[in-house]
Design a protein around this nucleic acid. Structure first.
Lengths: 336, 336
DNA sequence: ATGAAAGCGCTAACAG
DNA sequence: CTGTTAGCGCTTTCAT
């Protein structure tokens, strides 16, 4: 393995100069620089990055902790992170926790051991205390996930308002008995989406029937099963707001299987605007959240932190919008 | 930052012993080990992993090059890789190339610079020559992708046979005029799936009409558009084999929009068995490929390579199976 | 603008 | 079983 001293020798300079050519070329005289560069070429020299990492104790690598990379929402966020990272010369270490908190705690050691320069967390399961302590010592950004009252830069959407908007859309369409399939309530995202749903219901003086709120697991099957419960009610709802698209799809399947037409007999609105929501039939009306941009923004914030910027603005809330397709009945309503 | 020498001093041993406690505890006397461990705890010592990486010139990190992490097929494979990596104490560096070959060439530098101990490639766009040279010097495994005649350990499926099976299934159901929406033909995967389709058609003495083969881009829209072409034919096909599920979904949408019933008027079979293929309506008949296992297997092979094993078996072909759902008409056929 | 030289923290060969 | 010691290859301070 050819090393810096080999280059130095052949170019008749010191290793310091070679190092300068690599890291701050402007401080080296044009002549010398050319000479060194040509020797580097000639010897096909590759700097030993590990030595550099060690010496500088920085790695140009960031850690991304994701609950489940097989979930399209997370995959898109990671896509955005990776793009912004690569554009800025950073590498991405991916840790998939499979929702096991122990994996998260383990992953944090990478930070402590300086194996990474910073971390983006897409999960919200770490203890607030731990996370706060970590974030005081290392650059950390939360994306999508957020933890109440935690002073860590966070990129997210307004889950409450978005859900309220989704629900109000159903109300505007004339629905009076609206059900909600919420996400697992250990998640603050789920709790917020539920909160938004309730706000819409209360503010519009609709009946509040607790049986119309059922907790799913953000999966197709759970959406399917919760919808079956609704359909079994003496007075079933006429519309359902599901806290993510997958559950919305499951709910629609259940409705159809029970002879209901969607949206005519049962209107459904989802959340996330995953790619398949437009392919589904009926195409899903849903809240579009900017997944890729969220990742990009999170990475940008992390970069700033790593450059020493101290963020005073903690919450970065990105815009969502209601995408009206076929599952809610709005389009058909217009035609009437 | 507390370092090894601090621990050594306080424990009244040498740094060598501390190092041994960390890396090969069995070579240290029980007593000494306990003493050292307690000091480590006391000082809250975190080894400087960068120093270790440097010194040992290995990183316990592998590089995964993926064309597009937002594609669920790749996301699942990456999930499998990550799981096997983590289980063996390895970290995963993720590089998303967005189908830009330059990014792949760049990524390879990580190997040359020893920033990673090995690489799993899910893409097939590097020049064969380059890849061969790389694989001679560094542990490399190809997953899903494969490059003809390249002596690099590869985990894949038999795309030819699987496609033949999918097509034969349609033939068995009585279809005589079967179309194929193939993938982009720069990809060997696409070419193989096309090959399998053709084999089935030829072997069953069906008509071979070149207009019945159209190239898509593995996207919903391209499936939709190619199906429109088929429907515009004087004699449209009665069945379509699409080289992936997304295109199959697009094709079905086009058929439905043109008043055809799927599968009654138009049978469709896809490929991949992505999660959404079972949620789609009609649920997709498709070839299931073991995406997660493929990633896992690839990582296992890579681990072996990194431990010095030289693989004589180059091609590792995992099993696929035809998942019969509703889009092909087989279930309804049975009922008759 | 360049060179000399120290040293980052760890590992492993060698000696005892 | 444990200690001594020599680096790994780079960056950076200090001098010139």
């Amino acid at each position: 393995m050819v090393k810096m001293s080999d280059v130095a020798k052949l170019a008749n300079v010191s290793t310091a100069t070679v190092s300068r050519v690599l890291r701050s070329p402007e401080t080296v005289k044009e002549n010398t620089r050319q000479k060194v560069l040509s020797v580097i070429e000639e010897l096909n020299y590759q700097p030993n990055i590990l030595a550099r990492h060690f010496r500088r104790s920085e790695t140009n690598t960031i850690l991304v902790i994701v609950p489940n990379i097989m979930n399209t929402v997370f995959a898109e966020i990671v896509g955005g992170i990776e793009q912004a990272a690569a554009a800025n010369g950073y590498k991405v270490l991916l840790r998939n926790t499979n929702l096991d908190v122990r994996n998260e705690y383990e992953a944090i050691d990478h930070l402590k051991q300086r194996q990474v320069d910073g971390m983006i967390l897409l999960s919200e399961r770490l203890e607030k205390k731990t996370l706060l302590e970590i974030s005081k010592q290392y650059p950390v950004v939360l994306a999508s996930a957020y933890i109440e009252g935690l002073k860590v830069p966070t990129v997210s959407i307004d889950n409450i308002s978005s859900s309220r908007e989704a629900t109000e859309h159903l109300i505007r369409l004339g629905h009076k008995r609206i059900a909600n399939i919420c996400g697992p309530l250990f998640s603050s995202i789920s709790r917020d989406r539920l909160k938004g749903f309730k706000q819409a219901v209360y503010q519009n003086d609709l009946e509040v029937d607790s049986v119309l709120i059922q907790e799913g697991e953000f999966t197709f099957d759970s959406g399917y099963n919760q919808m079956l419960k609704f359909l079994a009610l003496e007075v079933p709802p006429t519309a359902v707001f599901a806290a993510n698209d997958e559950m919305a799809m499951g709910a629609i399947k259940a409705a159809k299987e029970n002879g209901l037409k969607v949206p005519e007999d049962m209107a459904v609105v989802g959340f996330d605007n995953i790619k398949f929501s437009s392919m589904f039939e009926p195409a899903l009306t849903t809240i579009a959240q900017p997944k890729y941009e969220m990742g990009k923004k999170a990475m940008e914030l992390l970069l700033e932190q790593m450059q020493g910027v101290v963020h005073t603005k903690i919450q970065h809330v990105l815009d969502t919008n209601l995408v009206i397709r076929d599952s809610c009945g709005a389009k058909k309503a217009e035609l009437v």
